[in-house]
Nucleic acid binder design. Structure first.
Length: 265
DNA sequence: CCCCATGTTCGACA
DNA sequence: GTGTCGAACATGGG
């Protein structure tokens, strides 16, 4: 599930734990989500510390603890965060559980494409400090956008939008939504774009990020039918702009939904 | 049984 | 270096 807005939604699911002390850490030490971290060290470091802050950047989250501990979480394809009763007995897919006296903070991930990072340091670790500007920020301006396009002149736009160094947080449905609103064919390349289409694309990147954060990122609301979103999930869907059938192709190795009637090039 | 999945990474190749 | 492609990861759902 998790793209920009879903990640923001899940980040907030742990907010009830802010300010609380972690009394117990339950984890499956050999789970694949710990492949880039030392799960034993995480257990030791977090126990007795207080959760003081949480942040999201693209698809990456960062939870800061009182003893200079930084916990990074990436949700991968099937990860999610939630709270539970402090007496929780973790099930098979609940790989990391932080227990306070009031509640439990739970990271669940059946497919385990997600991952956990951890560092102890006074300043933010490199995996957090080194992230590129997010498309919804003002630092992501037309200059940055132009640079991205000129650096990848022949990348199909669908593939480029999925590049996390370029558009951190954009995932499969957002990329399709952006191209559909900009009326650009997903396989078009930056080289082929008119100045007008480039301007459209920049605007729709901003618009879809803002819309997604507002509608899904706050309370996982259901987007209106005027978005591509509600029409793309099953075959046989119809483009809400043209009334023509939606089609599915593979671009950049990913299933891509688009409306041939309005996304010609 | 088959195919598909809102993600990332790696290796082979042109 | 650029870009493409397929496979891999592990599990569940239709």
């Amino acid at each position: 599930m998790p793209e920009l807005a879903e990640v923001e939604f899940y980040r907030k699911q742990w907010s009830p734990g802010l300010g609380q002390t972690i009394e117990k850490v339950l984890l499956h030490p050999k789970a694949r989500i710990f492949r880039e971290a030392d799960s034993t060290a995480i257990g030791k470091a977090l126990k007795g510390s207080r959760l003081v802050d949480s942040l999201a950047h693209g698809k990456q989250m960062c939870f800061r603890f009182s003893n200079d501990s930084w916990l990074g979480i990436h949700l991968g394809m099937s990860g999610r965060l939630q709270t539970a009763h402090p007496e929780i007995v973790p099930s098979r897919h609940e790989h990391l559980v932080l227990v306070t006296d009031k509640l439990a903070l739970v990271f669940t991930d059946p497919r385990m494409f997600g991952k956990v990072l951890h560092d102890r340091s006074a300043s933010p670790p490199v995996w957090w400090a080194g992230l590129p500007p997010q498309p919804q920020e003002s630092a992501f301006d037309r200059k940055r956008f132009r640079e991205i396009l000129s650096r990848h002149p022949r990348q199909p736009l669908k593939a480029l939008l999925l590049d996390q160094e370029s558009f951190p947080g954009v995932g499969n449905w957002m990329a399709d939504e952006i191209l559909w609103r900009a009326r650009i064919h997903p396989a078009s390349r930056p080289l082929e774009l008119s100045a007008y289409k480039r301007g459209q694309l920049f605007g729709k990147v901003k618009e879809v990020c803002a819309d997604a954060l507002r509608v899904i990122g706050t309370d996982w609301g259901n987007p209106p039918d005027s978005w591509l979103f509600n029409h793309r999930w099953k075959r046989g869907g119809t483009c809400p702009v043209s009334g023509q059938p939606l089609e599915f192709i593979t671009v950049g190795g990913r299933t891509t939904c688009y409306s041939p009637a309005i996304q010609k090039a």
